[in-house]
Amino acid sequence: MSVLAAVQPSFRAIAATVVPEAGTLDAGGWMELERIVEQALAPRPRRLQRQLVTLIRAIEWLPLLRYGRRFTRLDPRRRARVLEVLQNSPLLLLRRGFWGLRTLALMGYYARPAAAASIGYRADPRGWAARR
């Protein structure tokens, strides 16, 4: 069962703030990113999955208090500011929560072979033989 389905637009907005290049992904690219994240979440406890969805919802709605708009309606600079507040929060719980969410976004983006290739990562099981 999908964990992200209920919060997909918010998750995509967060992921594209963590990794700006994610904003340029086509539908297939997003599907692959989300499949990787869903696979990572699937074996985790339901409680943790629910906490993640709650955090994403909170990130979506909390900017209303400061900016009068939801996260998905903010410009990239303000989105980054919202996430920075979480990352630097005095509350360990919030820092941990954001760290987990950031990790998932990075995993979804950089674990894709296309992303690894795009940054020039070339490790090959054949080792030196593949370079010479």
Binding site: V18, P20, L106, I119
Partner: peptide
């Protein structure tokens, strides 16, 4: 590897991406 490296870097956004690239 790419994901492990990305996770090890602090922060996010353009500065993070610049290091990864």
């Amino acid at each position: 590897f790419p994901f492990t490296t990305a996770k090890a870097l602090s922060g996010f956004g353009p500065d993070h991406t610049r290091v990864m690239r």
